[in-house]
Computed example of a mutant assay.
Amino acid sequence: MTKACFCGTFDPLTKGHIDIIERAAGIFEEVIVFVSVNSEKKEQFPKEQRMYWIKQATSHLKNVRCAIQTGLVVEACRKEGARVLVRGLRNSIDFQYEQNMEAMNHQMAPEIETVFLMSDPAHLYCSSSNVRELLRYGQDVSHMVPECVWQDLEKVKR
């Protein structure tokens, strides 16, 4: 059984993330989506909220589950018995960042393969950073986030 992990801050979860999760779920027997705590980022939404969104948005995928990850990604993969780390790429900037991370991860855990999935062109601009920026200015992000995220964001605005 091939298990894969997909790790990210998902702050907030976007339709681009869901696209990668759905595609990974079609390739691997099990996908564990880890809500990561990034020491370099100040997160806007609590990790429990982000995990809830992932569970809601992936409830139609029976081979996907979600957990909170602390520590290194490769340690989380090992703990789950996952041999694959899935990463999404939108552009060359993502590629440069992910290439560096893959090299570090490979040094620590050569048994874990990183698989890159290219973003659907419809989601090339769809990043959590862009969503947060648009939210700061009161803009509509309903086209960028899953329905469950949009509903919760709308409740906060009221």
Rank of each mutant, 00 (worst) to 15 (best):
residue 128 S to Y: 05
residue 59 S to H: 07
residue 52 Y to K: 15
residue 49 Q to P: 02
residue 28 F to Q: 00
residue 141 V to T: 04
residue 69 Q to C: 12
residue 51 M to N: 04
residue 83 R to S: 13
residue 67 A to G: 11
residue 65 R to E: 10
residue 53 W to R: 11
residue 132 R to V: 06
residue 54 I to D: 10
residue 12 P to E: 08
residue 5 C to L: 11
residue 47 K to P: 14
residue 98 E to R: 04
residue 149 V to C: 10
residue 143 H to Y: 12
residue 85 L to H: 13
residue 146 P to W: 07
residue 136 R to K: 11
residue 99 Q to W: 00
residue 42 K to M: 07
residue 119 S to W: 02
residue 62 K to T: 09
residue 67 A to H: 05
residue 46 P to E: 02
residue 151 Q to Y: 01
residue 2 T to C: 06
residue 141 V to N: 06
residue 94 D to M: 02
residue 111 E to Q: 06
residue 157 K to C: 01
residue 107 Q to T: 12
residue 14 T to I: 14
residue 140 D to K: 06
residue 34 F to W: 10
residue 118 M to W: 08
residue 45 F to Y: 04
residue 156 V to E: 14
residue 58 T to Y: 06
residue 42 K to V: 07
residue 103 A to I: 00
residue 90 R to H: 03
residue 15 K to L: 13
residue 135 L to E: 00
residue 12 P to K: 12
residue 54 I to F: 10
residue 116 F to V: 06
residue 49 Q to Y: 06
residue 136 R to S: 08
residue 149 V to H: 14
residue 73 V to M: 13
residue 84 V to Q: 12
residue 40 E to T: 02
residue 86 V to M: 00
residue 112 I to T: 08
residue 46 P to M: 02
residue 89 L to M: 09
residue 137 Y to N: 02
residue 32 I to K: 11
residue 91 N to C: 07
residue 65 R to S: 11
residue 83 R to K: 14
residue 115 V to Q: 02
residue 18 I to Y: 05
residue 71 G to Y: 08
residue 83 R to Y: 07
residue 125 Y to L: 05
residue 154 E to W: 06
residue 30 E to R: 07
residue 52 Y to N: 15
residue 72 L to Q: 14
residue 136 R to W: 02
residue 137 Y to W: 04
residue 105 N to P: 04
residue 34 F to Q: 13
residue 64 V to G: 05
residue 55 K to C: 08
residue 76 A to P: 09
residue 108 M to Y: 13
residue 125 Y to P: 03
residue 102 E to N: 13
residue 89 L to Q: 03
residue 100 N to L: 00
residue 105 N to G: 01
residue 49 Q to G: 03
residue 5 C to K: 03
residue 145 V to R: 14
residue 126 C to F: 04
residue 44 Q to C: 05
residue 114 T to D: 09
residue 151 Q to R: 08
residue 145 V to M: 15
residue 156 V to K: 14
residue 28 F to T: 01
residue 54 I to T: 12
residue 93 I to L: 11
residue 71 G to M: 13
residue 29 E to D: 14
residue 112 I to K: 09
residue 120 D to M: 01
residue 24 A to V: 04
residue 97 Y to R: 00
residue 130 N to D: 01
residue 68 I to C: 03
residue 154 E to T: 05
residue 76 A to M: 09
residue 17 H to S: 04
residue 16 G to V: 07
